[in-house]
Every structure is written in C-alpha cells, then in structure tokens.
Design a protein around this nucleic acid. Sequence first.
DNA 1: TACCGTTATATCGCACGCGATAAATAAGGA
DNA 2: TCCTTATTTATCGCGTGCGATATAACGGTA
Lengths: 154, 154
Amino acid sequence: MSAPHTPDLATLDDQLCFAIYSANTAINRMYRPYLNKLGLTYPQYIALLALWEKDDVTVGALGKRLFLDTNTLTPLLKRLEGMGHLTRTRDPKDERVVRIRLTDQGRALQGQASDALACVHAMASEADVDLKPWIEALGHLRNEALKKAQCAGG
Amino acid sequence: MSAPHTPDLATLDDQLCFAIYSANTAINRMYRPYLNKLGLTYPQYIALLALWEKDDVTVGALGKRLFLDTNTLTPLLKRLEGMGHLTRTRDPKDERVVRIRLTDQGRALQGQASDALACVHAMASEADVDLKPWIEALGHLRNEALKKAQCAGG
DNA sequence: TACCGTTATATCGCACGCGATAAATAAGGA
DNA sequence: TCCTTATTTATCGCGTGCGATATAACGGTA
C-alpha cells in the first residue's frame, strides 16, 4: 500500500471517478431543459421514475430503491408534495411510517417526460452505443462500489 | 415525439440516467473514507487530480477541464486555498485572471491519495472489469450528452 | 480622455447529498 | 404499568452545481 507515486494512473482522463462524475453531470444537463418544462429537478425526476414503477411505498423503502437516506428524501418529497405530484401520509397501523402515493397529476407526468427519453435514445444511437449492457454493467459497478464503501467503514 | 406511454422503458433499472446517477454516488461513497483522512471532499479531490496533472492554470481553464463554471469552482478553490493546498493570485498582466498554483503541501497530497486508487483497482478486479475501455466509453458518452445539452438551449 | 462591448471572476439563492443529531412511535421485558 | 431499546422519519449544517446577476478589467473607437 501507499505507493509513493503512480504517474501513469494519476491523470484525470485515466480516472474512473472523473469519467463517471463528468458523465453524470453531462447527462443531468442534457435532461435539464426537458425537466425545466415540467418544473422538476433531476433527482426529483429520478424519484418519480421509482414511484411510477411502484408507489404506495414508505420513505425508507423508496430510499433503499434509490440508494438515498431520509435526510435527502424527506425535503425532496415535501417539494413534490407541495407541487401536488404526491401525498405523504402517516400509516395508521404504524405512526412512524410515512407512505408515499402518487396523485393523478403526478402519474400524468410520466407521459410528459417522454421527450427526455427520446433524447437519451437519440444520443445513444448517435454515440453508437447499445444501452442495455451498459446499464447492466453500471449497476454491477455500483454494487461493487457500495460493497467497498460499506466495509471501509461508511 | 411525445409517445403517450413507454412502459418498457420507464422502469428505473432500465434507465441510463439512474445507472450513472447511482454509480456516481456509490463511487463517491467508496472514496469518502479515504478522502476524509485527507480532509478533502470528492469534488475537491477531482479538482486536485486536474491540478496534479497541470497547475499554474486560470480558473476558466480549470473549469473547462472539469466541465464546471466559476460559480462552482471559486468557492471550492477558496477552501483548498484556506487549507494551504494552493494559491490564487491575480495575473499582473491581466488583472481579470486568477492563476491557480499548487503549494508543496498540495502536491504532496497526491502520494497520500494512493490508497483510494488502490481501492478502485481492487474493486475493478473484483467486478472483473477492465477500466480502460470503460473510461473511454464514458468520456464519449459525456461528450455526446454535452452536445445534446448545448443544442437543446443550455 | 470618455465610452462601449467583451471577458474573467465573484456573489447570491435554491436544491441536493450526507454526517450528525433529534423526535416520535413501536416492541419487549421486569 | 414503567423502562429500555430499536425503528422510522425529520432537522440542521456544510459543500457542491448551477441559473442569474454583479463586479472588475481589458480592448477598441472616437
């Protein structure tokens, strides 16, 4: 461990972290004009993706799906509630739990977001990339990184 | 355009945006314990990666390298300056320009960050992934996304 | 010199992401 | 019942990202 210097690995363009970091912000920017029309931020859109797939879930369950904690999710969900896209109600059977349910308005957003999807696929075809294996591999990478993060004492 | 519904594409796990979004946060978390030891945040580390490769650059040039604007970089660089890792000095020939130069202390951090690099490579080998083509492909994807972001009126 | 447009950096407000902490409820044992 | 512990959600502070705006300095023209 602690090799003194690794010049061949230290350059920015050779770093996986920068590649993913900058690709993420770039895709965020690509989505932005479409999401602005809907009044949504990128993380709000991601959360809605999960809810469009399955709603009537607890904050904790949604957080596990998105790999986010309540300190991030609660304010985000409150904003989506304020816009009328979902409801946050305490579960009568267990008052600790808050259940998230989409409103009709929130469900209707899914159709309006199709322009963004079309843009992603246009980009993928222009970049000559088949998305499916990419998405799979990135998911695998994420799980490995999370495993490392756990054992390192995160 | 504007297809009413695309259920086969709308699931979270089929989305490139979520795959990259969650992979990025996962890698951030993997780095965190190592960077905490150095008192650095993830974006600060990314900026230092660029500066270790080439310093004595303007804020604007560094921003182009990192795909970030001054509204993000200036406060970040001020914090790194406050820690003593770099200096920010106005160029006497053009007082608009601020030149960023690493201190010896800032340069010495590169060696101390090798544990994080080792962790990334351990993860890559455990995930059975050859990093090089990945990093290249992600860079290509980033450039295509930025192109889309530009023309869409970013 | 004054004026004007451009360029480089900085500032402000808002929404994340997260470590740390708090508050409320539930579950189980004496 | 009371007490203790665990679980779930919420709150606070700080550091990004970024749109919008401001400030300062340069370049060119008259």
